[in-house]
């Protein structure tokens, strides 16, 4: 009895391996084509990162070989540059964190039934608020709150809330109403539908809003220096005020590269977090 089952199993195994031989090449071409598809979807991101690294290196080489005055050398000392960059990032990320905490729940609330009537007016205000010049917002707020890191953060938050709020609302709004109904029809609660259907389907649009906000923030944070907020902006203002072109160019390039790098990180997150099957 035992030997017979063993034999049967061996027979099955033998059959499998026999069938496995002609299947194998097909499987390997499948992995190759899958590899190609993965490369195609990551290609842009790899190029973007390579470009950022190359630009960084070019800047470094230029700074090392340029003939710099003592003032320039102290302003552009590696420790000082690192300090400004960290400050800039702190400002950006803190503002971004506050923005997420405010805008996403607000966006969700504004698309729920009791507040749905507010969706259109808020979207209109969001679009129109985006047109207000950033310097104006930063300086006016500083006059009111005082010149400090916190005033800078607050103005950045105000400025970056809009794209996140808008994309959260649009992302949730564009989810097919029939899918929501299908979910409710199966007995999912409104909250369950929100978390398992609506939010996952809104993720791509929401994340692209977050990325836009981050890039905006990196750029706008350069203005924080006007109100003592710190950051890389100081290089630009110093460069302009003292006619130090090297400092000016370095500051501007660093802000631009930081924005590109943040944009890259955002794209990677979007790529990874995009729900499968869409």
């Amino acid at each position: 009895m035992n030997t017979r089952t063993l034999n049967a199993e061996a027979g099955i195994a033998g059959g499998d391996s026999a069938a496995g031989i002609p299947v194998d090449p097909a499987a390997s071409t499948a992995t190759v084509s899958r590899g190609r598809a993965i490369w195609a979807s990551w290609k842009g991101l790899v190029y973007q990162l390579a470009g950022i690294i190359l630009a960084c290196l070019a800047l470094l080489v230029w700074l090392l070989t340029a003939d710099l005055s003592t003032i320039e050398l102290t302003t552009l000392a590696p420790a000082a540059l690192w300090g400004y960059t960290v400050e800039h990032l702190q400002l950006t990320l803190l503002a971004a964190a506050i923005v997420l905490v405010i805008a996403i729940p607000l966006g969700i609330a504004l698309t729920r039934k009791p507040l749905r009537f507010l969706t259109a007016p808020v979207l209109a205000i969001a679009n129109f608020g985006q047109a207000a010049p950033a310097v104006g917002v930063v300086v006016l707020l500083a006059l009111w709150v005082g010149f400090s890191f916190w005033a800078a953060t607050l103005s950045l938050v105000l400025y970056a809330v809009l794209p996140v709020l808008r994309n959260t609302m649009i992302g949730l709004d564009q989810v097919d109403a029939r899918l929501v109904e299908a979910g409710r029809g199966m007995g999912m609660s409104a909250t369950a539908v929100l978390f398992t259907v609506e939010l996952p389907l809104a993720v791509p649009v929401m994340l692209s809003g977050v990325r836009t906000a981050l890039v905006l923030l990196v750029g706008t944070a350069a203005l924080a220096t006007f109100i003592n907020g710190g950051g890389l902006g100081i290089l630009i203002t110093t460069g302009v005020n003292l006619s130090l072109t090297t400092v000016l160019v370095t500051g501007a390039l660093l802000v631009a590269l930081l924005a590109l790098l943040i944009d890259w990180v955002g794209r990677v997150v979007e790529h990874v977090a995009r729900p499968k099957g869409l």
């Binding site: 029939r178 899918l179 109904e181 299908a182 029809g185 398992t196 389907l201 729900p275 099957g277 869409l278």
Partner: peptide, 10 residues
């Protein structure tokens, strides 16, 4: 419902 109403991300 019409067209099944399947959740595309599942």
């Amino acid at each position: 419902i019409q067209a099944g109403g399947l959740f595309p991300h599942m």
